[in-house]
Simulated scan of single mutants.
Amino acid sequence: MHTSVESLFAALWQDYIQITPSAHAVHQLLAAEGEEIINDHVAFRTFDRAKINLDKLAAHFTALGYEAKGDYDFTAKKLTAKHFEHPNTTYPKVFISELRVDELSDQAVAIVDGLIAQIPDDAAQAKDFLYSGPQWQVSAKDYRTLLAESEYAAWMSAWGFRANHFTVSVNQLQSGLSLVEVNQVLKDNGFALNTSGGEIKGGEDVFLAQSSTMADRYQVKFSDETLEIPSCFYEFAQRYHLPNGELYHGFVAASADKIFESTNAM
């Protein structure tokens, strides 16, 4: 496992921008305006199977001092999630979700378990596990079968283990831009935004407003053919103060539910 938070996030970022060039472009666009980009959170996906479940991913962060803070349930998408924070609040929060595989059809369960069977038992302990990509072979046929049932399962089958998205902390933009203004800058520069549930999900009433780009499209070589499919996206989060004056650090399930759709194959 990594010995520092900095080295882990640096490795995750390099892997992420390889398949999400738009995030790098957004980063450069904001940096050109004099912004220093602070990450609000980084998100990961996995399956609820013992070798590679949520806890196995979380271990890489808890070993570096992160602590579990919130639990979330996405009934329609069949997901369980947790978020983690570091006592050093300058470090990004971490959001990890896992798919409740057994809630899928027998056919989909068989495909997922076939992928899991290809993973070494100790794979999750490797230093580079969180950005190791798919540790299996999968066919485009099986990808399509999963996609018909669960976009999340299909995405995992194609992309495996890596950051699903990084998130710009709008609160920490030196220019003082609001999320509405950030979205306008993105649109003015040709970036497509996720409009599921509105361009902005949440708001001051739930103490968190979020928006995101739509995922880039990238060529993936499956075992039987190559397809161009959605990869990863870039999120933007503006947090508001609670009645007690503290900044809200959690997540809003109803909003996150729509953010997941940034990787939908439109």
Rank of each mutant, 00 (worst) to 15 (best):
N264L: 11
Q238G: 04
G198T: 08
A32P: 00
T89I: 13
T80G: 01
A23M: 05
L99D: 14
F207Y: 15
N189R: 13
K221D: 13
K77R: 14
Y240P: 00
S150T: 09
N244F: 03
L12A: 13
W136E: 03
A124G: 00
A158C: 07
V101E: 14
I200A: 07
M214W: 07
V101L: 07
P120I: 11
D113W: 07
I259W: 01
L173G: 01
H241E: 10
I38F: 11
D15S: 13
S262T: 05
D216K: 05
T3A: 09
V185N: 05
F95E: 01
K78W: 08
P21A: 12
E199G: 02
G160I: 10
E228T: 15
Q14M: 10
N264W: 09
S105F: 11
T195W: 01
E85G: 03
E33W: 03
Y143S: 07
Q174A: 14
S22K: 07
K56S: 10
H241S: 14
F260N: 03
A192H: 07
I19G: 03
S22P: 00
P21D: 13
G250S: 13
A153V: 08
F44P: 08
R49M: 08
S169D: 15
S211Q: 10
R239M: 02
A148E: 14
Y16D: 10
L186Q: 07
A50V: 06
A63R: 09
K258I: 02
D40R: 09
S211R: 12
S223F: 10
Y248R: 04
A81L: 10
V101M: 09
D142F: 04
Y91P: 01
P87S: 11
A43N: 07
